Amino acid sequence: MNRQTHARDDQHYLPAMGRHWLLPLYDPFTRLARVGRIHAQLLDRADLRPGQRILEIGCGTGNLLTALGRRAPDIEAVGIDPDPAALRRARRKAARRRLPIRYEQAFAGHLPQPDASFDRVLSSFMLHHLDEEERGRALGEVRRVLRPGGEFHVVDIDATPSGTGRAHRRPLVADSVPERVLASMTEAGLTGVQENGRERARFGAYAFYRAEK
Rank of each mutant, 00 (worst) to 15 (best):
A205P: 09
L111D: 04
G192D: 09
P73Y: 08
T66N: 03
N196I: 12
R3L: 11
G150Q: 08
R3G: 03
A67M: 10
P73F: 06
H110D: 12
A108T: 05
E195Q: 14
P161M: 14
A46L: 12
D44R: 15
M1G: 10
R97P: 01
R92D: 12
A205E: 06
A183H: 15
D115N: 14
S176F: 01
E212P: 00
Y26I: 01
G136P: 03
V78M: 13
R200N: 11
L172K: 09
E179V: 14
A33V: 08
D158P: 01
T5A: 13
Q52N: 06
R3H: 11
R166S: 04
R31N: 15
F208C: 04
E195P: 00
Q11G: 04
L64A: 02
L172Q: 13
Q113I: 09
A211L: 10
G60N: 05
W21S: 14
R31V: 10
G189A: 09
H20Q: 09
P82M: 07
L65K: 08
P50R: 13
F125H: 00
H110P: 04
V181Y: 03
D9Y: 03
A174I: 12
D119G: 06
M185L: 15
R88S: 13
L65I: 06
R8N: 15
F118N: 02
D158W: 01
A7K: 07
L25G: 10
A159E: 05
T191P: 02
A159G: 04
G79P: 04
D27G: 06
G18L: 03
N196S: 14
T191I: 15
G109F: 03
Q4L: 13
A90M: 13
D74N: 05
G150S: 13
H110V: 03
D10R: 05
N63C: 03
T160F: 06
P171F: 11
P114T: 15
R180P: 04
R144N: 09
I157Q: 00
L190S: 08
G109I: 05
E56A: 01
L42Y: 02
G204S: 07
H12C: 14
E179D: 08
E199M: 04
H39N: 15
Y206M: 01
G189D: 08
S123F: 00
L48A: 05
T191D: 11
L14D: 01
G60R: 02
V155P: 00
R88Q: 09
V78K: 10
G163F: 08
G36Y: 04
R144I: 10
L111Y: 04
R200E: 14
G165M: 07
E76D: 15
Q11E: 15
M17C: 06
E141Y: 09
P178T: 07
N2S: 10
F125W: 06
E132S: 11
F118Q: 11
L32A: 13
F125V: 00
I75L: 13
F107I: 07
D119L: 13
R98E: 14
D175T: 11
A77M: 12
M1Q: 09
T164S: 15
R166K: 10
L48W: 14
H12E: 14
G18Y: 03
M1S: 12
A94Y: 08
Y26S: 02
M17G: 03
G60S: 09
